[in-house]
Amino acid sequence: MPEWLRIRRGDEALGEDAAQWTKCPKCGEMLYRPELAASLYVCKNCGHNFRMHAFDRISMLIDSDFVEIGADLIPGDPLEWVDKVPYPQKLERDREKSQLSEGVVCGFGAIGGFPVALGVMDFNFRGGTMGTVVGERIALLFEAARERKVPCIVCTASGGARMEEGMLALMQMAKTTLAVRRFIAGGNFYISVLTDPTTGGVSASFAFQADVIVAEAKASIGFAGRRVIEQTIRQKLPDNFQTAEFLLEKGAIDMVVKRPDLRATLIRLLDYAAGDPAHRSGRNGKAAVAHETPEEAPA
């Protein structure tokens, strides 16, 4: 385990032998946890991708120290939200369950020697939903990456905007959009990695605003949730609907990558983004306004 992760995780999360075995939700195979971790949380029997903890994904991608930003930002309770459980209680429960302070971990490190800004969302925390803190951390990440002129990679996993923070959560779509656009207008490179699941307000903002959009194999990706669509059309959707492979076929994303190949793929993309030094000055000299047409998905 890298040093940054040891510090971040503390001791209590380690050495738990109670849950050394886990069952694959797809094929039912019993899997030995250390082995599962070594195989990047891919089932050795059926190839099912387990949803990864943000820290596991960061250590899978980053080959250097990782310096977190915005980690001390903690959500308030602006709506004083209560349903079955008060919102602060839900947050407390998820903090305990996920060992995270919020649904995204952002920071700086290197991948294959390339310095990058990296944001990783975690479905374990409120279903990866975007509230004010997720929006703020993502915006901070793009702003800091723009300052440092390093590429930015965001791995998304989200059920959309966080209901318990109401319209303040929805407005994070606008906030993150503005930060992404400034970052790209500054001549910088943005890759999004869509992991299972990426939907709603996150897919309809920064997830689909990247220069290159990579999706992890079999990930479920879309705008509306599957159940909402099924209720609307009153019929069952085919299994492959809203999968990464489906989106690739429809022309909505650039590539589908298997998890074990993700790091190497990102390294190659980062290498291309260095461009030809002969042309670089023109790119970075661009004003931060009126950026040309963004990527266009063929209909």
Binding site: R181, T199, S205, F208, G222, F223, L247, A297
Partner: peptide
């Protein structure tokens, strides 16, 4: 690609 369409309109 509804998500992309909204994301691009916002951008």
């Amino acid at each position: 690609a509804q998500a992309e369409a909204i994301a691009s309109a916002l951008a």
